[in-house]
Design a protein around this nucleic acid. Structure first.
Length: 154
DNA sequence: GCCAACGTTGGC
DNA sequence: GCCAACGTTGGC
């Protein structure tokens, strides 16, 4: 089983939105970056677990955990001309963009903030991608060691 | 709202 | 294939 970190702006989709979804499960749609797309399509497997990270908000940080319940399949929002994430370059034959389904495992009792993560950037979390300067990738792998450490911070 | 960082696009 | 222009991300 592998571990990941998924970023979302809580104004668009927060951990509470996932908690309120049917079966606490939702498709992680709207990813429009090829590197992240490749991970959704090829690398992320059923049973993998992820950190749900809130970005571009008052308190950026990890808000909880999810598990992957369905592996990569085409992102329907890219094929819907009325959808804000529509991409004219995507077709049913060549869908271009992919999603996985995620199910909420647990919302943290409190957000483990970016500040806290960063305070360990030169020691325990030296390899955590999200702490790398200028990192903008919305989906990144997390090592088991970093995963365990971040959970211990809650 | 600002701005650094970085991905994508398009002209050549 | 290069690279400048442009758009987006995301923290502050």
């Amino acid at each position: 089983m592998n571990h990941w970190l998924f970023k979302s702006e809580p104004d668009s989709f927060s951990i509470d939105d996932l908690a309120a979804a049917p079966k606490k499960t939702a498709a992680w749609d709207g990813v429009r970056n090829f590197q992240a797309r490749n991970m959704l399509r090829d690398s992320i497997k059923k049973g993998d677990q992820g950190l749900f990270y809130h970005s571009s908000c008052a308190v950026p940080g990890v808000a909880g955990l999810f598990t992957v319940t369905r592996e990569g399949y085409p992102d329907a929002t890219a094929l819907d001309p009325k959808h804000p994430h529509y991409d004219a370059g995507a077709t049913p034959e060549e869908p271009r963009w992919y999603v996985v389904d995620v199910k909420l495992l647990r919302k943290f009792k409190r957000v483990v903030t970016l500040d806290e993560l960063r305070s360990h950037a030169s020691s325990k979390l030296a390899n955590l991608e999200i702490l790398r300067r200028g990192n903008r990738l919305s989906i990144t792998p997390v090592s088991k060691r970093d995963w365990d450490f971040i959970l211990s911070l809650e």
